[in-house]
Amino acid sequence: MNSDRPVFLNLVQFHFPIAAVMSVGHRAAGVLMVLTIPFTVYLLDLSLMGPEGYEKARVTLQLGLVKLALLLALWALMHHLLAGIRFLLIDFDIGVGKAAGRRSAILVMVLAPFLALGVGALL
């Protein structure tokens, strides 16, 4: 019998690798975007109902709280898109391995907020 058991795991000292954090972010961003689908469809419908509907949709998109939500959704999109490209490249055996995976995960985490802010400023 192995006398080293039971093993004490200090959960406070656990650190998740950056790739794991990025991967959880990919899932969270995906779920967040799924929740925006009904609102997106509603706004699309409103904007196409006629000139008044278009105006209503335009005004709605200018509201402070909505703009903040849009920025969050843009971050979710950019993070999900970049992480998705990373996963696809790994499917094709590009960037496999601990060091490469770590570097690309950091790149995704850093680039996504910048892209979100950049696109948000242009829109």
């Binding site: 904007s47 196409l48 006629g50 000139p51 278009y54 105006e55 999109l77 898109l81 998705g84 490209i85 696809l88 696109v119 242009l122 829109l123």
Partner: peptide, 28 residues
Amino acid sequence: SAIYLGIYFIYIIGHFVFDPPDSYQAWS
């Protein structure tokens, strides 16, 4: 679906950045 979504998002963001609709007529 991911590949189509990725391409479409680049296209739609490009459209709204470079040629945004400025009226209901243009949009519809």
